[in-house]
């Protein structure tokens, strides 16, 4: 039974992966905004920002990677929405296959697509001067945190994918996620923000995640913030997953 479910999910994931490889423009669109932010902040605004880090691009990259993921997962919502519209979703539902397999296929595809986008963005950052003294273990830890974060946000993206009434609605939910990094330590240190804003910025999930990745990439000790970051990722993942599955059950009953 379980092996069947795995084989089915693999077949369905093969299908959605082809959607990604046959529309490479979706990956380019995904990376365009973070790369534009990267250029804008490094070359236009960066000169005026004092971060205490040796180079601004080193300071900035973790936040840009978060923006990349936030912009990438909106395609999961989009692809899921298109499946719901086209009737192929109903075909899968009416077949003797394990039911959440259809959702898992989209989620696994999102992990692959976002991984590619992240590699491209890191590549561009290296081209414009990003350097990291971090070793293999630190890079693996960064990859692990980013994948966990992608997984959590992708399950969040499943919800609008299932419930949206229009394509625009399916994609629009990611806009707040793309701009949330601005009120965090992603682009500028939080010290200069006014009281309440600073309190929000310092305690929202992105700040702990960004600070942890920044410390890992700079080969600095991460302290306890890594546990805060992991707890946020796991918490978002569990809540988003439960809501997504509940939405799915309501949709197919």
């Amino acid at each position: 039974m379980t092996t069947h479910a795995i084989a089915e999910t693999a077949a369905l994931t093969g299908r959605t992966l082809r959607h990604v490889t046959r529309s490479v423009d979706t990956i380019l669109t995904t990376t365009m905004m973070p790369i534009a932010f990267l250029m804008l902040f490094v070359y236009v605004l960066g000169g005026a920002i004092t971060t205490g880090a040796d180079s601004y691009v080193n300071y900035l990259l973790p936040g840009i990677l978060i923006v990349t993921i936030a912009s990438g997962i909106s395609y999961t919502a989009f692809r899921l929405f298109m499946d719901m519209q086209s009737g192929i979703f109903e075909r899968f539902q009416s077949m003797p296959i394990a039911r959440p397999g259809v959702l898992w296929a989209h989620v696994l595809t999102s992990l692959c697509a976002n991984l590619i986008s992240l590699v491209i963005v890191v590549g561009v950052a290296v081209l414009i001067g990003f350097r990291s003294p971090a070793g293999v273990a630190a890079w693996l830890a960064v990859a692990g945190i980013l994948l966990l974060f992608t997984l959590a946000l992708t399950w969040l993206a499943v919800i609008p994918g299932l419930t949206a009434k229009s394509v625009d609605g399916a994609a629009a939910f990611s806009y707040p996620l793309i701009f949330l990094p601005f009120i965090s330590s992603a682009f500028v240190p939080t010290d200069t923000m006014p009281g309440p804003l600073r309190a929000f910025a310092e305690n929202q999930p992105l700040t702990s995640i960004v600070n942890t990745i920044r410390a890992l990439l700079a080969d600095q000790p991460v302290g306890t913030e890594i546990w805060t970051a992991l707890a946020w990722c796991a918490g978002i993942l569990v809540v988003a997953y439960l809501f997504a599955i509940a939405t799915y059950r309501r949709k197919i009953s």
Partner: peptide, 8 residues
């Protein structure tokens, strides 16, 4: 409505 995958 035809339930086929346009991209495949």
């Amino acid at each position: 409505f035809t339930a086929v995958d346009d991209i495949l």
